[in-house]
Amino acid sequence: MFRNFIQNLDQKKLKVFFVFLIFSFVSWSISKLSQTYDSWIEVTLIPTKFPDSLLLKNESTQRVNLRLKASGFKLLGMQIGEKSEKVNLSSISKNNAGYYLTNGKLKNQWERRFSNAEILSLQPDSVFFDLYQVQAKKVKVKPKLGLDLVQNYVLLGSLRVEPDSIMIKGPASEIENINVIETVEFTLREVSENFSQKLLIAKPENFSSSEILKSAVLVSGNVVKFSEKVFELPIEVKNTPKGYDLRVFPKTVSLLCKAGEDDLRKLTESDFKVVAVYDSIVTNQNALRLTIEQKPKNTIALRLLENEVKFVLEPK
């Protein structure tokens, strides 16, 4: 009988009826969700910013119940899925039961994060964290970066690491013998220009209960195209004995200089000084050792083509 009644209804009127029914339901829902309510939600805590002397046990997880006053829309969004919030442990307190934060401190941290919502209360009154005492120290970072340089290109100076040292903390037995920490290995290919590369820190072996406070460093360097040039330089004699003349032959020496192309064009013989120092104790009877006493900072490599020079020592 009911089926016959439905079939006898005007289908067009029926469709209009359902449209108005759905519209009414949506309007009623919006009206209700726009009103203010208070409700409890469970929040998982994500600890951050530990004091230098403390670490959290990996298996430790804390949750609090948070009572919020907000619109129905806001509360509905918070109750969908698992809710988690970061908590700053830098001001953590300690008593006989362990390390804890009061719900007052948690409320102060979170008030700005919950926009358009008021925190009414938290449970429990204090949240305890399973922390343990550790040591902290700063160690140098050693970059393990390989460079595959294009032919006739060279690294100018040394690699720069930012930061060049990082903090580690953990039990003394794990960190006391660690003074340098390495990055993961990485190679840059076909390098022909200045570079900057982010490298992750490699976790040392047997580092199970310790923590590295920075996960990566930035390694950079300057790369230039180099060229070579031979300079013919005069030899300056030093420490000639009194009452003698000391003559060297030849009077000049060839110096092979490697530098960036732009820097090499600016260099002259006056930028270098090669000396032969006479020493009656260590000097060979026939030759004096040559050394480069003055050189520009912007050279890559220098090599004397002759390391010794003959000499004659004659009375005046």
Rank of each mutant, 00 (worst) to 15 (best):
K13M: 02
K13H: 13
K15E: 01
F17W: 13
L21E: 08
S29M: 09
I30S: 01
I30Q: 01
D38A: 06
L54N: 03
R63Q: 15
N65C: 11
K69V: 05
A70Y: 00
F73P: 00
G77R: 06
E85A: 14
L89C: 05
L89E: 12
S90Q: 13
S91K: 11
G98S: 09
Y100P: 00
L106Q: 06
E111N: 15
R112T: 14
F114R: 06
P124R: 00
S126Q: 04
Q133H: 11
A136G: 10
K140T: 12
L147W: 07
D148P: 09
Q151A: 09
Y153S: 03
L159M: 02
M167R: 13
M167G: 08
K169P: 09
S173Q: 11
E185G: 09
V191W: 02
S196K: 13
S196V: 11
L199W: 12
I201W: 05
S210Q: 07
E211I: 09
I212C: 06
V219L: 07
S220V: 04
F226G: 05
E232Y: 03
E236M: 10
T240E: 01
P241G: 00
L246T: 04
K251D: 15
V274I: 14
V277E: 13
Y278H: 05
Y278L: 01
V282T: 15
T291W: 07
K295P: 06
P296I: 13
K297G: 08
N307A: 03
F311K: 10
L313Q: 04
